[in-house]
Design a protein around this nucleic acid. Structure first.
Length: 883
DNA sequence: GTGAATGAAAT
DNA sequence: ATTTCATTCAC
């Protein structure tokens, strides 16, 4: 509709792009792609590959049958699933972050990413233009290449708001949409619905043609798999295809991508259809198991996969050389597995692999679903179902693995009730097994699920909005609690935190291990093949990353054992878009479950860590001023984490491309913290000299000696650091100086250490990096007290912080605390007890108020109201204000 | 899922 | 002028 269905004029390309876009989630785009040099996808693209694989499946008969539907599906997919679109190219700052985050983390091990980001922002702020230029240039380059590759790419999804069609509600997450199409842009929904009228699109499509694409990619995938998997099974045909695919495949893909402008998407396009045809047997089976959506195919896939894996699993876990790769091609693997498994192990079954899987599913899932039928035909993955994408893979999987026998949980579900434990377990399992590769599927499915019903969208929308708020509130409370407890608990916390860490690690390790194992079995062959190929091409060793990977692997092995026990539960995994999300989900689950109670304690981690950790951190100390580090991570003793390693390394495919990309990226200058410190100092000085920043102006500090200020600041900070959520900022300020100073001193023996530290501290205070950005309107709710600005110098600083905080966040107890601190500053005890109390009550009040205001009044109004209102209720504040 | 930062792009 | 989202990953 709106769009005119596509309207806009859109040249053919636009249309095409639109079509294409639907599919991919966001893969990361690599400049290389545009170049096309070689071809493989870049690092992360592996995932894409998986997707592709999945999608690839043969064409979709459906599609042929009904182009429209296909389109629709795609569209849906986009909407529903996040889809995959190319990801935005990183901007200069992001490149910088990517490049330096590890350094920051080294310096401040305890600091979480948020804190690191702040620091990075500070660094970025002080970075000289010339230095920034490099990043800027690279970013531009990326962008250009990206745009070239994705002509129609839109940065923003169409705004959802305008909703066009009633049904869907726009809600869709925004993420997905934007990918390409200029046309659709407007409304995905609409677009979706409207099927692009004509064929023209199809033509375009043809180019990108899902079918073809799918075919190619499938071939490719298949080929690879086949190779890897080998001909074990009978699929000679596959192998053949695979070969072809190999040769051509990559390039073809590339080309297609370029041509179509949205390479990845193209593949995606088929997804839905793909599921059916390609996934075919498996999918169907799954479908049976899952009652709800016929669409499920993808999800289904997983389960079969898992099953197969299990079956095959008898195999060795041992070599997992590179699980990562494996992840990518879950689809392929699945397919292969199916074939292979069937042939080998399931000979009997082999005759009807699908049946097996289906049967399994059915059993597991049981009753609900009717066994039936294949989805392929009719169902439209179309819009309503949306998705063929995948929905429940996890569930299926879990079941499959878990218990073929257990009937209880239907595949479907996410039972609401499931015990937390179960969910937890499930999550874990899912994570482990799910392999990131499937993530996408899941995600999609998630969305799809809801989509089944119209309700889906709304729900999702609501969810997002609602949830966050709720969360925040909760959080606040928690914070308060924490704060209150904070002091007392410290010792415990420390231990706890450690403990917690271990636990976490273990879990993670387990997960990985499992995953690896599972995949490994399947993948092994595949991997080897890939490696070989890559080797041939490059001859070089697979990847630099390996080192990290290995470490990971090792751990997992050890730990691994238990994981399996965990029973899987369907629920949890609901949606994970990415690894991270998975982790996040897991984390959540664990926490909720209480398994990771220690985590809470860890909250401080960042704060405390920075503070206390300093000593330890110092180890890292940047004595060297060397600006460039080839690989900080490597040097880092702690392994950054598996996840990280996972991401980075994508061993398999990419050889050249990856290298190039990496090269470029690595070529970017990496600055040592020291450098920044210096700069910071300089900057600070400069600022002083010039004029204070607007923000600073209010601050009186200049007058007093920096050292004094600093001291004061420190005290205050220390006292309250616990309270402040953002502690990071304060912390940062404090922590950095000390450590840095000490290090600096040591290394340089700089006479100016003190000054430097001071400067740094100042920096922290200063707006330079953080919170520069205005708070969003939505967040601005609380007020900022204008009046306070004029407190005493020392206080002024605090105020400043407060102000910042406030800006950034709604009034939280933190803010309150800070305020209080101002007034109570001197008395530690007081501050401790009082604040807590204060904050709780105040917080609650504030929260309530905020909500009300938000709902009723405009933001500004709300702000005022809050202030006023608050005053009466919170004496402390008032006092502060008065002061 | 969220957030913390900056920035490009779209609305 | 505002809002998305890109990266990272503890929470």
């Amino acid at each position: 509709m709106k769009g005119g269905g596509g309207g806009k004029e859109v040249p053919a390309e636009g249309e095409v792009s639109a079509k294409q876009r639907p599919k991919r989630k966001c893969l990361q785009w690599h400049p290389l792609l545009s170049k096309k040099k070689a071809l493989d996808f870049s690092e992360e693209e592996e995932d894409e590959d998986e997707e592709e694989l999945e999608k690839v499946p043969v064409e979709c008969p459906e599609r042929s049958g009904q182009a429209t539907e296909c389109v629709a599906m795609e569209d849906d997919g986009e909407e529903d699933s996040s889809e995959q679109r190319a990801r935005r190219p990183m901007n200069a700052f992001l490149l910088f972050c990517k490049r330096h985050r590890s350094l920051v983390r080294q310096e401040h091990p305890r600091l979480d990413n948020r804190g690191a980001t702040k620091i990075l922002a500070d660094w970025w702020a002080v970075l000289e233009p010339s230095e920034k230029q490099k990043y800027t240039d690279m970013a531009k380059e990326y962008k250009d290449a990206f745009m070239k590759a994705n002509p129609g790419y839109k940065w923003c999804p169409a705004t959802s708001k305008p909703v066009k069609s009633p049904t869907h509600a726009v809600s869709n997450t925004r993420k997905k949409a934007w990918s390409l199409p200029s046309n659709n842009t407007k409304d995905i929904t609409v677009a979706k619905k409207v099927p692009k009228t004509d064929s023209s699109p199809q033509l375009n499509f043809a180019m990108a043609d899902p079918t073809k694409m799918g075919g190619l990619s499938m071939l490719l995938l298949a080929g690879e798999h086949a190779l890897t998997a080998r001909e074990i099974s009978s699929s000679s045909s596959q192998s053949g295809a695979g070969d072809v695919a190999k040769h051509t495949g990559k390039s073809a893909l590339f080309q297609l991508a370029e041509i179509s402008s949205c390479p990845p998407q193209i593949v995606d396009g088929c997804k839905s259809s793909e599921c059916r045809s390609a996934a075919a047997p498996q999918t169907e089976v799954c479908g049976l198991s899952q009652p709800n959506s016929p669409d499920l195919p993808s999800s289904c896939m997983r389960s079969p996969l898992f099953q197969l894996a299990e079956i095959s699993s008898s195999g060795s876990q041992a070599s997992v050389s590179e699980v990562k790769q494996c992840g990518q091609s879950a689809l392929f693997q699945l397919a292969e597995m199916c074939l292979a498994s069937e042939a080998e192990k399931l000979e009997a079954l082999s005759s009807q692999p699908a049946m097996d899987s289906s049967s399994l599913c059915a059993q597991d899932s049981a009753p609900d679903t009717t066994p039936t039928v294949d989805l392929p035909t009719p169902t439209p993955p179309s819009s309503p179902p949306s998705s063929c994408k995948k929905k429940k893979k996890p569930n299926d999987v879990a079941k499959g693995e878990k218990s073929p026998g257990s009937p209880k949980k239907p595949c479907k579900k996410r039972s609401s009730s499931g015990s937390d434990l179960e969910s937890l377990m499930y999550t874990i399992e899912a994570v482990a097994k799910g392999a990131w590769g499937s993530e996408e599927m899941e995600t999609t499915r998630k969305r799809a699920r809801p989509s089944g019903g119209l309700s889906d969208q709304p729900s999702s929308a609501e969810k997002k909005k609602t949830k966050p708020k709720a969360k925040k509130q909760l959080r606040t409370k928690e914070d308060e609690e924490e704060k209150g407890e904070g002091e007392d608990c410290k010792p415990l916390e420390t231990e706890g935190s450690l403990f917690g860490h271990e636990t976490e690690l273990k879990i993670e390790c387990k997960k990985e291990a499992d995953v690896k194992v599972d995949r490994a079995e399947d993948l092994e062959p595949h991997i080897s093949t890939e490696q070989q190929i890559s080797k041939n091409i490059e001859a070089g060793s697979p990847l630099p990353n390996k080192g990290e990977e290995k470490d990971l692997e090792v751990k997992p092995v050890v730990i691994q054992t238990e994981e399996k026990d965990t029973e899987s539960k369907p629920e949890a995994c609901g949606s994970r878009k990415s690894e991270r999300s998975c982790k996040g989900a897991l984390y959540k689950t664990l926490v909720s479950e209480g398994m990771l109670t220690s985590l809470r304690a860890n909250v401080d981690r960042g704060k405390r860590g920075s503070m206390r950790g300093i000593a330890s951190e110092s180890e890292i100390g940047w004595i060297d001023e060397t600006c460039n580090f080839s690989q900080p991570a490597a040097s880092n003793p702690k392994k950054l984490k598996k996840s990280k390693s996972k991401e980075e390394p994508v061993p398999g495919n990419l050889g050249k491309l990856e290298e190039e990309f990496e090269k470029k990226f690595n070529s970017l200058p990496q600055y040592s913290p020291l450098t920044f410190d210096k700069k910071t100092t300089a900057v600070t000085k400069r600022k002083k000299a010039n004029v204070a920043n607007p923000l600073e102006n209010p601050t009186p500090n200049k007058g007093p000696s920096p050292s004094q200020k600093k001291t004061l600041f420190h005290k205050i900070v220390r006292k309250y650091k616990h309270k402040k959520e953002k502690a990071g900022t304060l912390e940062k300020a404090i922590a950095q100086p000390d450590p840095t100073a000490s290090d600096t001193c040591t290394a340089k023996s700089d006479s100016s250490c003190a000054s430097l530290a001071t400067e740094n501290r100042k920096m922290g205070d200063v707006p330079v990096g953080s919170q520069k950005r205005k708070a969003r309107k939505s967040k601005i709710t609380h007020l900022v007290r204008t009046a306070d600005g004029r407190l005493s110098p020392a206080e002024a600083d605090k105020v400043k912080e407060l102000t910042q905080d406030q800006d950034g966040k709604p009034l939280t107890h933190e803010t309150l605390c800070n305020t209080e601190s101002c007034s109570t500053d001197p008395g530690p005890a007081e501050s401790g007890s009082l604040p807590a109390f204060f904050s709780l009550a105040a917080l609650a009040e504030v929260a309530a108020m905020e909500n009300m205001h938000r709902g009723q009044r405009a933001v500004s109004v709300a702000a005022e109201g809050q202030v006023k209102d608050m005053a009466p209720q919170t004496p402390v504040l008032i006092s502060c204000a008065d002061q």
